[in-house]
């Protein structure tokens, strides 16, 4: 197996990991499959495109502005749709469908304003390629691996060791008990929602720097993150790491030995196989959803 595949696996696994992590942050605290996450994933790079390429603001500043905008927009969306729906005691299915509706709206708005053709954030020719024992890696790839691992470590440390993280963990673990101990569940899940959206926006920016962006790219990428989350076992960070690596490995081995056009299909075939033989993922946390 050439070294190039290992590089590709690492690059893609880190992206899936970041997407899956941000998604599970929202899923674990808000308890529903938030498909509008895919909308924030695409919205962030397009906002960056607006500031960086059209308004010609400096790169770091435009990244900061776009992420802050994502935080604000996701806060508004969450407060006006999901929190209100939850206040009417809707079940998870209702929330999922409304998030699907929101995703459609975000995607179509982007298509109207920016067009559907592929947009690039970097210059078209690929610069700064490094060679590591017959494998090639671009500077952008290195940057994206490093920054997603960094973001993941920082957020894990915050959740693992701070007082705020303890609150998040308690909401994930047992919502009603957390409520009894005086934790403001609404506030905690709102903050997790906003942080998750910000993280997924950043991962969207990383993807867009590498391969460019289209308004429809979010859905597939998000589903890869979800697949990684499900095969890793919901609620386990190490399981997620394993799931992301497994997914990326399977995809790139398929691309190398069969054909790259089957990469989409293989992700879902793995998901379906897992749901047949190991419905709880390999970390095996019990979930009522799977069996009645």
């Amino acid at each position: 197996m050439p070294f190039q595949i290992i590089i590709n696996i690492i690059v893609f696994a880190s992206i899936y990991l970041l997407i899956g992590y941000s998604f599970s942050l929202v899923y674990n605290t808000s308890k529903f499959f938030n498909l509008s996450h895919a909308g924030f994933l695409v919205l962030a790079p397009y906002l960056l495109y607006l500031f960086y390429k059209i308004l010609l603001i400096e790169l770091t500043l435009s990244i900061i502005i776009s992420v802050i905008l994502i935080l604000i927009i996701s806060h508004i969306v969450n407060n006006n749709v999901f929190v209100r729906l939850k206040a009417r005691s809707s079940n998870t299915l209702i929330l999922l469908i409304s998030s699907l509706g929101l995703y459609i709206i975000i995607e179509s708005l982007i298509s109207i304003f920016f067009g559907t053709e592929k947009k690039l954030l970097r210059s078209p020719e690929i610069k700064n390629i490094y060679e590591i024992s017959n494998g090639f890696i671009t500077l952008i790839n290195i940057f994206s691996v490093v920054s997603s691992i960094l973001l993941l470590t920082i957020s894990s440390i915050i959740i693992g060791f701070s007082r705020f993280g303890l609150k998040i963990k308690s909401v994930i673990n047992n919502e009603s008990l957390a409520k009894i101990y005086g934790i403001n569940i609404k506030k905690i899940s709102n903050i997790s929602f906003v942080i998750g959206s910000g993280l997924v926006g950043l991962s969207g920016i990383l993807v867009a720097f590498d391969t460019g962006m289209t308004p429809t790219m979010g859905f597939n990428l998000l589903l890869y993150g979800v697949v990684a989350m499900i095969i890793g076992g919901v609620g386990s960070t190490w399981g997620l790491v394993g799931g992301a690596i497994l997914l990326a490995t399977a995809q790139h081995l398929t691309a190398y030995y069969i054909d790259s056009k089957w990469m989409d299909a293989i992700a879902y075939i793995i998901l379906i196989l897992f749901l047949i033989w190991k419905p709880l993922g390999f970390s095996g946390k019990r979930l009522k959803k799977i069996e009645i």
């Binding site: 299915l93 589903l223 979800v226 697949v227 499900i230 992700a267 879902y268 749901l275 047949i276 959803k289």
Partner: peptide, 15 residues
């Protein structure tokens, strides 16, 4: 696919 319900079923059908 019908080993799962609700939101998991939706993800499976998407797959």
């Amino acid at each position: 696919a019908l080993r799962t319900v609700d939101d998991y079923f939706i993800i499976i059908t998407l797959g």
